[in-house]
């Protein structure tokens, strides 16, 4: 029991951040039919934003909203400079995000160097939960990530913006015919997805070594989790993150990370093999 609880908390910690990253991928896919391959680099930018801001003496908790803003701003710039010319060619848009990811990652290498750096966690004292000692920062992340995800879902399901966005995902031409400017929605959702990735990078920065490859490493499971969860609705991100986050943490505690990765990958392939619409497609049957 004493071994299980920390593991469960680790899984929850990982899953909750994975969820933030996955929501961004799902809403961008829903809107533009594009899997944003630069998502990992927005995550990266968030982590480096914390590094820079901490260096300037900005308190950690303040760097989180700033990382969110940095990711969002970069997303806006990418849309304005590139994606708006090719949004009607989804296959090319995927490639363009791939090129963007390469360029952003290399820009980070040029500015900060290829080696890994450390970000100082704001909470270092472990706390006692249910009789075990556990990192208070990780607990804080769980709370923050779940709160942010809840806000995002509230925006998507309770506001006029969310209604318009979901309508555009379900039937883009019809949404246009009802007066919705879908191009503007594209831009806002792409930017929101990037902001969430940036925010996730910032909260994960103290737990990972901050280096130019960390983005891809973190976002790859998120890619799998949106496949597993299904891209049909934003809620699919929850299912996917739970499955991928949970299985990764469990497998990594038993085997080496490489074997764990292979197991989780195979599991994902098996799930999408039999459920092409992902786990969220199950409910609709």
């Amino acid at each position: 029991m004493s071994g299980f609880l920390p593991l469960a908390l680790d899984a929850l910690n990982y899953t909750s951040v994975l969820l933030l990253v996955s929501i961004g991928l799902v809403i961008v896919f829903g809107m533009m039919q594009v899997i944003n391959l630069a998502h990992g680099e927005f995550f990266l930018v968030g982590a480096y934003a914390v590094l820079v801001l901490q260096g300037l003496g900005v308190p950690f908790w303040l760097t989180l909203p700033l990382a969110f803003a940095a990711g969002g701003l970069l997303g806006l710039v990418c849309d304005a400079a590139i994606l708006r010319f090719i949004y009607h060619r989804p296959a090319d848009t995927i490639l363009a995000t791939w090129g963007l990811s390469l360029a952003i990652r290399q820009a980070i290498v040029i500015i900060f160097g290829p080696s890994s750096q450390q970000v100082v966690a704001p909470l270092t004292e472990p706390v006692n939960v249910f009789g075990i000692s556990y990192s208070s920062y990780r607990l804080a992340i769980i709370a923050i990530a779940i709160a942010v995800a809840a806000v995002v879902f509230a925006v998507l399901y309770k506001t006029a913006f969310g209604l318009a966005a979901r309508a555009a995902m379900a039937n883009r031409p019809m949404a246009q015919c009802l007066g919705i400017n879908t191009r503007r929605l594209d831009r806002v959702t792409f930017s929101l997805g990037a902001a969430l990735a940036g925010f996730s990078g910032a909260v994960m920065a103290p737990l990972m070594s901050v280096d130019p490859q960390m983005g891809m490493g973190f976002v790859l499971p998120a890619f799998l989790s949106i496949l597993v969860g299904g891209v049909g609705s934003p809620a699919g991100a929850i299912w996917g993150s739970v499955v991928i986050g949970g299985s990764t943490t469990a497998a990594a505690s038993i085997w080496t990370p490489v074997i764990a990765q292979i197991i989780v990958f195979s599991l994902s392939i098996a799930i999408i093999r039999f459920l092409p619409a992902g786990l969220s497609g199950l409910r609709r049957k």
Binding site: I86, G99, A103, I104
Partner: peptide, 10 residues
Amino acid sequence: IGLAFVAVIV
């Protein structure tokens, strides 16, 4: 090359 790639795609 990353940026050139994007430019070619566009």
